[in-house]
Nucleic acid binder design. Structure first.
Length: 283
DNA sequence: ACCCAGGCGGGCG
DNA sequence: CGCCCGCATGGG
């Protein structure tokens, strides 16, 4: 297990890990050391933040782990400029100050699709539970002796009954269908080069993926920063902040934020979501 | 016991 | 179109 240190800027590993993004559904946080562990393409990675400006990365394949870390935690984002775009009112200034260094993550499109198919009408703890069961049961052991995320082929071969045993409930038929489509030739990775509308349109043709889940995948699996997923938490927070607490339709909410944060809607959503959820919507 | 969770699909008016 | 309903399951 080799190790290296890397300089980081405006990055907070724990905040990022606690923000319920795909890597947090299959990774783990050691509460004592603050170290985050995850498996990326079969390569185990362990990251520890030594100081605000330095992280230590440990992995048997250190080169892969380091470049994966930079990509997954979006190290090339200019957070100063992003904060200028999104911290335009009191709530967002509070969110940015309190969770400074919270980053969007950029995850594998297939892995992101799986966890967000699981996310509908569900809660974060249980999404993690189901994901870990999926990896245990359908993941293959990698060269480094850890289980990697199940492939589309593996999940498409699973029976509905087997998927149900992982606790998926009514989502198992969506999972089997989506895995089947991908195993059958839909290459999710190929859409990395396409624009937001193309990515979202493709995703929404898959069963079990609607407007919100497609936006989550577009944002966290494809890095489309114009995506703005509106879940129950974001909905509540937006209504409270900008609609006097009145119940407002998703469509109006989308209209109300378009162009609001200079194209950085994805980051604005992350801070709205995290601040609204963690701080109980009372701030 | 009861309620809710990073919504979606289908059916109705 | 918009609205409304059911939905599997585990944790608070």
């Amino acid at each position: 297990m080799r190790s290296m240190e890397m300089r980081v800027n405006t990055f907070n590993l724990v905040h990022t890990f606690q923000s319920a993004q795909p890597v947090t559904f299959f990774g783990s946080l050691d509460g004592n050391s603050g170290a985050v562990s995850y498996v990326s393409s079969g390569n185990p990675v362990r990251v520890t933040q030594l100081s605000p400006g330095i992280v230590r990365i440990e992995s048997p394949d250190l080169e892969a782990a380091a470049s994966d870390f930079r990509e997954r935690f979006r190290m090339s984002d200019d957070m100063r400029r992003i904060y200028e775009d999104i911290a335009i009112d009191q709530f967002m200034r509070d969110a940015v100050r309190k969770y400074s260094g919270l980053r969007l993550t950029l995850n594998d499109p297939w892995e992101t699709t799986v966890v967000f198919v699981l996310s509908q009408f569900n809660n974060i703890k249980r999404i993690r539970l189901i994901t870990s069961r999926l990896i245990d049961r359908f993941g293959e052991e990698s060269a480094h002796g850890v289980k990697s995320f199940p492939t589309p082929e593996a999940l498409s071969r699973a029976t509905i009954a087997e998927l149900n045993e992982c606790g998926m409930g009514f989502r198992s038929r969506y999972m089997k269908a989506v895995a089947g489509t991908c195993a059958d030739g839909l290459d999710l990775g190929r859409y990395r080069g396409k624009d937001y509308a193309a990515v979202k349109g493709m995703l929404m043709e898959l069963p079990g993926i609607g407007d919100k889940v497609a936006d989550c995948i577009a944002l966290m699996g494809y890095g489309k920063l114009e995506a703005f997923p509106i879940d129950t938490w974001v909905k509540r927070t937006l209504e409270r902040l900008y609609f006097n607490g009145k119940s407002t339709g998703i469509k109006r909410l989308h209209e109300s934020v378009s162009g609001k944060w200079g194209g950085m809607q994805g980051y604005a959503q992350l801070y709205l979501y995290h601040h609204g959820r963690i701080d109980g919507n009372e701030a």
